[in-house]
Design a protein around this nucleic acid. Structure first.
Lengths: 238, 238
DNA sequence: GCAAAAGTGTTTTACTTACACCCATGT
DNA sequence: ACATGGGTGTAAGTAAAACACTTTTGC
């Protein structure tokens, strides 16, 4: 630091060299009742050509980072009412071969069967199992790992798992989701008791159809009720 | 989004207008056995002249955001071995009167009596009680509030409170710290039992001196032992 | 009627909460 | 000897964990 004034002024007029590019990258997690997947696009830039890349773009002049992330979600899925959480800024000086670029990383959560990838994007987009991705363009593998860690943490302390399921889901589907993403085993009866006690599910009085076994009851997440309970001190924890 | 290629390429050569300035702001929390305080500097820029401002600076060409934050800590305190946590990116297009500036906000934790503010910075720096700050330069009040919320959250789930105390501290000091920062009351015996069970404190077999009552035993935080226990699944929670 | 998954209670154990007295030091 | 805060244990209540059988549907 050259002088006090830099810090004192904090933000005075400066020369060009401190300007840099800023992007957002979205780790779009998807779930299809099997695997946790992540949406990738094939990179068409050397030296990463052909490698899977996260979905990202520059932050435009007239938008903030959140808006840029939502724009990407809308672009890929036609929808921007999607759970979105900022995770971390990646800013190593040499992280991008084309020059100084910092990236705000986000993750978001969708149910794969309920998500229609838009035509324009669809041609290039792939859902890949997070377990199977070993190598990605840029530092995207590091971003993915960081976001996955954050997802696992948030999943245990906030009721966000529902975003990975269809609007209507069975308790078994919900339990399996937690087991798959967190790589743990849960006791069926204890899991159900816990959710019953939280009182954040609405019984749709509807059943699964066309399953060759006893059909499960369907529920939806009662987000309004949860918000009310949370402000009264309800602690969600799986 | 104009075209697929922006997202596909993710980061191609672009014109100048997407470049912007990036700063870090540090919410340096300090504790003096009384109040939670935050380090501020008097803003010398219109239209915020005279108002308290957080400590911040531009991210330099050859450093990442973490390094910039550490540089600020070193500049203010002569020390960069300080607890530091990234919180959020602030990026509204109109947040800064001098043009497009995005800011990565961090908070850090120090014990005020153990912290010597460096001469150069000292002239302009003030510790202010977080309760008493109503108005700050730029969007720094919003940044402070966000970081304070994050601190309160992290304090309950990670053993970081020690960073606000001297290296040697009594159990009473530790309890009071939690009570002050979280604005709650804790039961003395239950608090002590919990810490004993976590087994993350080292009894220094030393006592307070020059107090006009029974002297308290002094402890230090056993960070190495905690890291070992944490990787074996120990959950810290106050 | 059989295969396949849904649904349901109880007991044991661990953790959390509430609570009151004696102890060591300085003055 | 007294004022001040330091230090300790127990009992009751609540939440977590472990565990097995009956029910409903499709074929």
């Amino acid at each position: 630091m050259e002088s006090t004034s830099r810090i004192v002024q904090a933000l005075g007029p400066l020369d060009e060299e401190v300007k840099l590019r800023c992007t957002v990258d979205c780790v779009i997690f998807g779930y299809d009742q099997e695997d946790l997947k992540v949406l990738t696009i094939e990179c068409n830039m050397e030296p990463f050509r052909g490698m899977p890349s996260l979905l990202g773009d520059f932050v435009a002049q007239d938008e903030d980072a959140d808006s840029a992330a939502k724009r990407i979600l809308k672009y890929c899925t036609g929808n921007d009412e999607i759970y979105l959480e900022e995770v971390k800024c990646f800013s190593k000086p040499d992280r991008h071969p084309f020059g100084r670029v910092i990236t705000i990383a986000y993750y978001s959560l969708v149910s794969i069967p309920q998500t229609i990838l838009t035509d324009a994007a669809g041609k290039h987009l792939n859902w890949r199992s997070v377990d199977e991705i070993t190598c990605m363009a840029f530092d995207h593998k590091e971003i993915l790992d960081t976001c996955l860690k954050q997802l696992r943490h948030s999943l245990r302390e906030k009721p966000i798992g529902f975003n990975l399921l269809p609007k209507k889901f069975s308790l078994k589907q919900l339990q399996t989701l937690y087991e798959v993403v967190l790589d743990i085993e849960l006791d069926k009866r204890n899991f159900r008791r816990k959710l019953r006690s939280l009182n954040i599910l609405i019984d749709l009085e509807e059943q699964q159809r066309e399953v060759n076994h006893r059909p499960a009851k369907l529920y939806k997440f009662d987000d309004k009720s949860f918000e009310k309970k949370r402000s009264n001190g309800l602690k969600f924890e799986i």
